Computed example of a mutant assay.
Amino acid sequence: MADFPYIYRWDRCGRKGQRCRVFARGTMNSVGLEFEDGFRMVSSGNALRRA
């Protein structure tokens, strides 16, 4: 579980409540996320919380 230390809080792309990890950080609090099933997306850092 340490590989995916965050939980996605927002209901975007049907991913609310799923575990994810950050693979990149950008400007204006944007983050690149990867979920346990390999799906990747860019979202806000505000959408994350520690698991």
Rank of each mutant, 00 (worst) to 15 (best):
S43E: 01
E36Y: 07
G45I: 02
D37G: 05
F39I: 06
L48S: 01
W10N: 11
Y6L: 12
R49Q: 13
G45E: 04
D3G: 04
R40A: 05
V42Y: 06
A2V: 12
M28Y: 14
F39G: 08
D11A: 14
K16I: 09
A24P: 00
Q18H: 11
N29I: 01
P5F: 11
A47L: 03
R40S: 07
S30N: 11
D3F: 07
N29S: 10
F23K: 01
D11E: 14
P5E: 08
R19F: 15
V42C: 06
M41V: 01
P5N: 07
R19C: 09
G32S: 09
M41C: 15
Y6H: 13
Y6E: 04
E34V: 15
R25I: 05
L33A: 03
A51C: 07
V42P: 01
A51E: 11
D37F: 02
A24H: 03
R12V: 15
F4V: 04
N46D: 12
D3C: 06
R9I: 13
C13E: 15
G38S: 10
D3I: 07
R50S: 05
Y8T: 07
F4Q: 08
F23W: 12
L48W: 06
F39D: 11
E36A: 08
T27I: 14
V31A: 01
M28C: 10
M28D: 14
S43C: 06
R21D: 03
Y6W: 15
E36T: 07
G26E: 06
F4M: 10
A51P: 00
G45K: 01
R25N: 05
D11F: 01
R21K: 15
R12I: 15
F4K: 07
A47H: 10
R21W: 09
I7F: 00
Y8G: 04
D3N: 13
R49L: 06
V22A: 02
R19K: 13
R49A: 12
R9D: 08
R9F: 05
R21Q: 05
R25P: 00
V31D: 03
A24I: 00
S30Y: 06
D37I: 00
A2C: 07
Q18N: 11
R49I: 08
A47Y: 01
R25W: 04
A24T: 04
R50G: 04
G45L: 00
C20N: 09
F35Y: 10
M41W: 09
R40Q: 15
T27V: 12
R12K: 10
M41F: 04
A47K: 00
F35M: 04
R19W: 08
E36P: 02
R25L: 04
W10T: 11
R19Q: 12
R19N: 09
L33N: 02
E36D: 03
G17R: 11
F4D: 05
A51W: 08
